[in-house]
Design a protein around this nucleic acid. Structure first.
Lengths: 232, 232
DNA sequence: GTATCATTCAAACGATTGTTTGAAACGAAT
DNA sequence: ATTCGTTTCAAACAATCGTTTGAATGATAC
């Protein structure tokens, strides 16, 4: 075929990736069998091992396909803000926007699989499997230090350790907001409105910023740690 | 033996529960086999099916053993605040303390398995397996409405829907803070200090309150939703 | 001692797992 | 038309899965 120069056509490789991505979200890595994947993709069972080598390698490729792009987009967004700032420290909301805003926009893309992937990614942060965690660590190695440094400069009065914790908290809130859409039904009766993918971002970003800029715990008061008295 | 009256002795049942709890955190439900569980517990393979019936039933009992107590403790804490308030609406920080403070105190208990269990619980919110989700929903059925109502009364100016979202965000931040301790290593080089289990609570509670009370998103602006221009 | 109960044990069950194999089918180049 | 490299296919592989079985063991009551 000649017309598959632009779009390589739904070839076996990407059909497998799509099917695996969706099934991993639905059932998890372990509970998703090769036969489920190849069955959904409409390809032969052996083709996964032929194209990817193993199930582990397939899992990694499922992530690599989109995670590399995502992290580059986050870096690009950060650098754009930094260029505009001309050496001045960024505002916290800009850094949050660069990291989490990009993620949420990807999660809002329900057509090209971005939504599915972000659910999978969020779920994977708590994935016990060690090789997945190691893989994630490698993929994030180029991004995290840049954002850390930007946050340190942006919030010079906040202890760096505290900033890292809050970054971690923000990551958790976002991941659950995307991945744990099912868990939301514990709290509310309704689901996330699929018709308005931007709604989550509009609700989450203020929460993240509010948490990031919350007054520090009473580091002066160190009497009893029963109940935090008042924060604001 | 006569001296095993006070402490019912590490009987088979609870040895299985302990081993399963630890292994589920370490490897997840699917990746943890019956043979791993019985091997660590030092009991016969068939004893799981004898005492619990099936692997599914074992999983549910692992949760039930501690979750029932946890939810009762959360309710007790809430009712204590409500009694003291004499009908007046509670302060947000009191509600957060009742729900999340109790959880964090359980997570700080590294000796009696509370820490292990809370990691497992946090991880399970994103668990795809349907029967676990259904089970969690049932266990939370008595607790969630009470806290929802308390929050609605406490924040009469905030739309109820927004409150539910923020409750969901808080749940996510806490779950990740506990369960995703491994994910923290993506961000920081160090781990949570095991010697100071209360540290997490002191860091997390201000973050949660800051997010809960953050100013609402600019619900007036509704121009284009390409890139959120400015938030603050 | 003997009967009765609950529990433990080694062994095996069928089903399913990820992976491998060797032949068949395909497309492009000679 | 024939060769070559790539891809697909049905079938089988050993390993492991959760579960079941029936006999051995233990403790308790008669």
């Amino acid at each position: 075929m000649a017309l598959q120069d632009a779009k390589p056509a739904p070839d076996t490789r990407s059909r497998i990736l799509d099917a695996a991505e969706a099934l991993f979200v639905e059932h998890g890595f372990e509970a998703t069998s090769m036969r489920m994947i190849t069955g959904r993709a409409g390809v032969n069972l052996a083709s996964v091992n032929y194209h990817f080598g193993s199930k582990e390698a397939l899992i990694q490729d499922v992530f690599r396909r989109r995670l590399t792009w995502l992290n580059e987009a986050r870096l690009t967004a950060l650098e754009q803000f930094e260029r505009a700032a001309k050496g001045a420290p960024l505002k916290p909301h800009q850094i949050v926007e660069a990291f989490f805003g990009v993620s949420l926009r990807m999660a809002a893309d329900t057509e090209h699989g971005g939504h599915t992937f972000m659910r999978l990614l969020g779920r994977t942060y708590t994935e016990p499997s060690s090789f997945v965690r190691q893989f994630l660590a490698d993929e994030y190695a180029a991004v995290v230090p840049r954002f850390k440094q930007a946050l340190f400069r942006s919030l010079p009065d906040v202890p760096p350790e505290e900033i890292l914790w809050r970054f971690h908290f923000m990551l958790g809130a976002m991941s659950y907001a995307i991945a744990g859409n099912d868990a939301l039904q514990l709290v509310a009766e309704y689901k996330l409105d699929e018709k308005d993918p931007g709604a989550l971002a509009r609700r989450l970003m203020p929460f993240l910023l509010g948490g990031l800029r919350a007054p520090l715990a009473g580091q002066a008061v160190k009497s009893k740690e029963k109940t935090p008295r008042k924060a604001a």
